[in-house]
Design a protein around this nucleic acid. Structure first.
Lengths: 210, 210
DNA sequence: TGATGAAGTGAATTTTGATTCATTAAGTGA
DNA sequence: TCACTTAATGAATCAAAATTCACTTCATCA
């Protein structure tokens, strides 16, 4: 009587969900939020529009999950850096330049997730991850202050917020699709990206260094 | 034959335009972009919905003008500070803390203009003014480098961008209507605002100081 | 004052996608 | 296989505002 899903079905459902998520992410990577329409996602994932709603309660929920998955990975990367036991000054530099370099690897996606105008609910989810990022930066700053590498007279929370705002803002220009050189094949070449990341990290480090 | 507007009419038209603009601004000040609907603006200005379109080609044009007027004033204030002949270090501090303090005077409006999710066209206009602000900050940074007050090894354009992103980001929390203490009557008291502005300016100055 | 050009009006239309839901297909257990 | 449950479909519906426009009112000028 009681209906039990078989493994096989369970797996197919999970796969459908993943495909929808992947299609959504892919569309944002290609065309930003403008492409992020439920009907587009559905056809990219090879399902009907209505089916998307069997897996996600709303468009916003779907895209918030896309953003969460991508953002959480970045938070994890920063956390690992903050934890690695090296000197705080070095860690702050590495954290920032790594974040910048990683963002530059998929510029269109990073632009959408960081800066592109989007609906309120997605925008609110952004804040959550900015906080999470800021928290990791703050940990590094605090440790630096304790170890005497950084100025002790600054509020670490404010400093971290400013640093995060600073490197995010400095990314907007380079990430922007409006940018002339947006689709140069070697997106400015790895060495240019490296140089940019270094510059940005340098300025941010200076804000707290002794 | 040819119809010539009299002074009287010209004045009334100009006045209508101003009233619409003022009403639009007022609505954003009160309820952010959520309240910024053409029909609301019209009734607040005491005209019919359709009349708004006699004065502005579209909603976006109307609100871009609102944003421009307010933002340009801020740019002018910064420009005056950059030009005042005092030491660059002092000027940078004054520029940032003044910006923060002024934003805190009308938090809801500042939040809408700086951070609140809004339509693409308005968001694009924001960028223009961020650039303009960044330019003034860059002038101060450059002069500081020339005078030897600031580190000469940083790219002034990147440094300015980071500084602007930094203090803008650090404003978002304090400005946000989501904030618990948003409508405390004395919005945290002038001395708290002053302290915050000072802290933010301090960190930003540190980013470029020698 | 009458003829004509502008301005003002606001209900109706348009637009843009998200969301629903009646229907069909597929899976389950006896 | 049958009776029943869940999944999938996609055209139709809905929603929320911006925008239009046929009509009314006001201004100008001979």
């Amino acid at each position: 009587m009681a209906y039990r899903k078989t493994e096989r079905v369970e797996a197919r459902l999970a796969d459908n969900r993943q495909r929808i998520l992947a299609a959504a992410r892919e569309l944002v990577s290609e065309g930003g939020w403008g492409e992020a329409q439920v009907s587009h996602v559905a056809s990219a994932a090879g399902v009907a529009t209505g089916s998307v709603y069997r897996y996600f309660p709303s468009k916003a929920d779907l895209f918030v999950e896309v953003l969460s998955v991508v953002s959480q990975r970045e938070v994890d990367v920063l956390e690992a850096i903050a934890d690695n036991g090296d000197s705080p000054h070095q860690n702050l530099h590495v954290a920032i330049s790594t974040f910048v370099a990683r963002a530059m690897r998929n510029r269109r996606l990073a632009y959408a997730l960081i800066a592109e105008p989007c609906e309120k609910e997605i925008d609110e989810a952004r804040l959550v991850y900015r906080h999470a990022i800021s928290k990791q930066i703050m940990r590094i700053v605090k440790e630096g202050q304790e170890r005497g590498e950084f100025r002790a007279d600054l509020d670490p929370s404010i400093a971290a917020t400013i640093i995060v705002g600073g490197f995010m803002e400095s990314l907007i220009g380079p990430l922007s699709p409006l940018n002339a050189d947006f689709d140069a094949s070697g997106p400015q070449g790895p060495e240019a990206v490296h140089a940019l990341a270094g510059q940005i990290a340098e300025v941010c480090c200076a804000a707290v260094a002794r």
